[in-house]
């Protein structure tokens, strides 16, 4: 069960290196490094000479001007924030990994006044979602089913395509409010 056809659902159009950019800043997570490697195959490795690559975990097997591996997503996001504060116009930001990761990195960028349309994104890896419970406002990461149980307040939540860039999360609404306990069985929708 999923509520679809909502305009706010993000679309990820691919990393597509902007060769006019003077610097390239990558924030990658998990299978997101594959998206970078595909770009190297597509346009050559030259852009790496002016690239900063921040990765959660393993670094890709390439030579960029600067590469840094973060142990976890929150650590990477902190670092990304510092990089963006110091970055100059002419720097293009590229994000790839799971939706939850892209969303959180995008939120950091938005808070640094970057227009989201200028950010290049590519979804790689699990389709699990980051969902906010509209009732208790708690955010549950890695949601694979709809409905699912809110990790904070325990309500049964239906996942909607309604997305908030400000929160970097989809919205989940109580599915059995009228008659608690009548929620349909969870179905795996975001493997």
């Amino acid at each position: 069960m999923l509520v679809q056809g909502i305009k706010s659902r993000p679309v990820y159009t691919g990393l597509a290196i902007d060769l006019q950019a003077r610097r390239h800043l990558f924030a990658l997570e998990g299978e997101g490094i594959e998206a970078l490697l595909d770009q190297v195959k597509a346009v050559g490795a030259q852009f790496l000479e002016t690239s900063d690559i921040l990765c959660v975990g393993k670094l890709p097997d390439v030579k960029a001007e600067y590469m840094w591996s973060a142990p976890t997503i929150p650590v990477l996001l902190n670092r990304l924030n510092v990089n963006l504060i110091n970055a100059k116009m002419g720097t293009r930001l590229y994000l790839s990994g799971t939706e939850g990761f892209i969303g959180q990195a995008m939120k950091i960028a938005l808070d640094q006044n970057i227009d989201f349309n200028s950010i290049r994104t590519e979804h790689r890896g699990s389709t699990a979602r980051r969902v906010q419970c509209v009732h208790c406002k708690g955010i549950t990461d890695d949601v694979k089913t709809s409905p699912f149980t809110c990790a904070h307040c325990g309500l049964n939540l239906l996942v909607r395509d309604h997305y908030s860039r400000r929160l970097a999360a989809f919205q989940g609404v109580c599915i059995d409010a009228e008659q608690p306990g009548t929620a349909p069985a969870p179905v795996v929708m975001f493997p």
Binding site: D18, Q20, A21, R22, R23, M89, G90, T91, R92, D115, N117, S118
Partner: peptide, 10 residues
């Protein structure tokens, strides 16, 4: 501006 990498949104 475009040649210096400014995106059109800005």
């Amino acid at each position: 501006a475009t040649a210096l990498g400014w995106p059109k949104q800005n």
